[in-house]
C-alpha cells in the first residue's frame, strides 16, 4: 500500500509520525477522502472508525536556537480521526485527522461519500459538539434532544442536578457556586 500517494497528490497534507496519521485541513478533507476512495491503488472503500478527540490548551516548552527553553501556550483544538480500510484490496488502515478550533468547531461531513459515517458523526456532534457541514440529519443521537452541553469534552462539568435534590444544601450549593457563571450564560 503506497500511502505516499496521498502526500504526493495533496502537498498540504502532513504525515504525523507520532500518531501515524495524516493531518488534513478541513478545506481539503472531502477531496482527500474522495481520493482515498477512488484511487485504484488505495481503494479505501470502508470507513471503519470515526472518533472525536478533545485537546485542551496546554503549556509547552519550546527549545530556542540558543538552547534555552521558553514556555508557549499551545491552543486547544478538537479533532476528528478517521480510520479507512479497503475491503476490495484487504489493506489498511489509513488514518486521517482533521483539526478544528474549540470555539466554533465545523468539519465537513463525509457522510455523502460514506454512509457509514452517518451515525458516527452524529455521535461526535452529540458528545463533542463538532458540527458536520453537509450532514443530512445532524441531531443528537445518544443524549436526549434537550441536552445542552457536550459531555465528552475534557472541560465538561456535570450539572448540579444530576441527582435530583429536593432541598439543595451544603455541598451541592458550594459546587453550584463554582460554575454559576457558566450555567447562567
Amino acid at each position: 500500500m503506497n500511502t505516499a500517494l496521498i502526500t504526493q497528490n495533496f502537498p498540504k497534507v502532513i504525515w504525523e509520525d507520532a500518531s501515524q496519521s495524516f493531518v488534513v485541513s478541513s478545506a481539503d478533507l472531502i477531496e482527500v477522502v474522495y481520493f482515498l476512495k477512488s484511487s485504484p491503488d488505495l481503494a479505501m472503500d470502508f470507513v471503519s472508525n470515526v472518533a472525536g478527540v478533545d485537546w485542551l490548551a496546554r503549556q509547552e516548552k519550546v527549545k530556542n536556537a540558543d538552547g534555552t527553553e521558553t514556555e508557549m501556550e499551545k491552543p486547544g483544538y478538537l479533532e476528528v480521526v478517521y480510520h479507512f480500510f479497503s475491503m476490495a484490496k484487504k489493506q489498511g488502515p489509513v488514518a486521517l485527522r482533521c483539526r478544528t478550533n474549540r470555539e466554533n468547531p465545523i468539519v465537513p461531513s463525509i457522510t455523502p461519500i460514506f454512509r457509514g459515517a452517518e451515525f458516527q458523526e452524529r455521535e461526535i456532534y452529540d458528545l463533542y459538539g463538532i458540527r458536520f457541514s453537509g450532514h443530512p440529519d445532524l441531531r443528537r443521537i445518544l443524549m436526549w434532544d434537550e441536552f445542552q452541553d457536550y459531555p465528552m469534552r475534557k472541560d465538561y462539568k456535570e450539572p448540579d442536578d444530576y441527582e435530583w435534590e429536593p432541598t439543595p444544601h451544603d455541598e451541592v450549593l458550594e459546587k453550584s457556586k463554582q460554575h454559576a457563571s457558566k450555567s447562567s450564560s
Partner: peptide, 30 residues
C-alpha cells in the same frame, strides 16, 4: 462485526481517549 478500540495514550495510567467502534451501532445505519 468489527469491534474496534481506538486508544490515545498520553503516557499516564489512564487512557487520554478511549473510543469503542461498536459493530451493532454502525450496523443500524441502514
Amino acid at each position: 462485526g468489527e469491534l474496534g478500540f481506538y486508544l490515545v495514550s498520553g503516557g499516564g495510567t489512564m487512557p487520554y481517549r478511549y473510543h469503542v467502534r461498536a459493530p451493532s451501532f454502525i450496523n443500524l445505519t441502514i
